[in-house]
Amino acid sequence: MFDLALLWETRELILQGLWNTVWICFLGCLVAVSLGLVLAALRLSSPRLFGYPVACYVELCRGTPLLVLLFLLYYGGPSIGLLLDAEIAGVTGIGLYGAGYFAEIYRGGFKSIPKGQLEAARMLGISPWHALTRIQIPQMLRLIVPPGTNQLIILVKESALISIISVDDLTKNATTIVNQTFNVIEPYLAVALLYWMIIELIARGGYALEKRLANRQPRHVVRQGESAHAHG
């Protein structure tokens, strides 16, 4: 039988795991989302100086498992004088790894805006900065919300790997309960549900944002009379 009492008795471990998973994922995703934007901007900026290093970084992220990156940071770090707490190594690993993917998502978003729109802006004398903030980013945001949401979900799920570098996250604490009680189903099912909840929240947030960005109604339309008044 499914032993609910067992979950109640071990609730502190589960809640601690939930809290650790949430804050580590949150900070890791924050690093990924912001560093990714910087990387994409560097890659697309007109002096091609940064293009190649950024491209290499992206390929490195895509070409290596997150777990190996975490091992390098946590177990390999000390040999080059980098002593990180397991949690900080987790945030760093998720952030650096996710940034590579987000850089590509942003780059795709920027690239899919026709170059002509920017030429039109230049011909009107609109500065590159205004073209970026008023024309490119608003359109890019719309395009990247679905793949961005997807990537956040993947990062949260992959965060279970930080349990292997001894972070007391949901997965590790579930394993601890299993080892103490020899009940396998209840702890793992419980944390599976909790992961699902976190991810459902992200997914719904993504849908809401998508809707909000897409359904923008014209905020203002000058009335006929008004303009006729102004211009005879």
Binding site: P114, G116, Q117, A120, I126, S127, P138, Q139, P218, V221
Partner: peptide, 24 residues
Amino acid sequence: MVFQHFHLWPHRTALENVTEALRL
């Protein structure tokens, strides 16, 4: 300049396309 493919900004209304440069 007027282009073959218009190059209007799709996230702005017709009026906003016209007023953007006037404001910026």
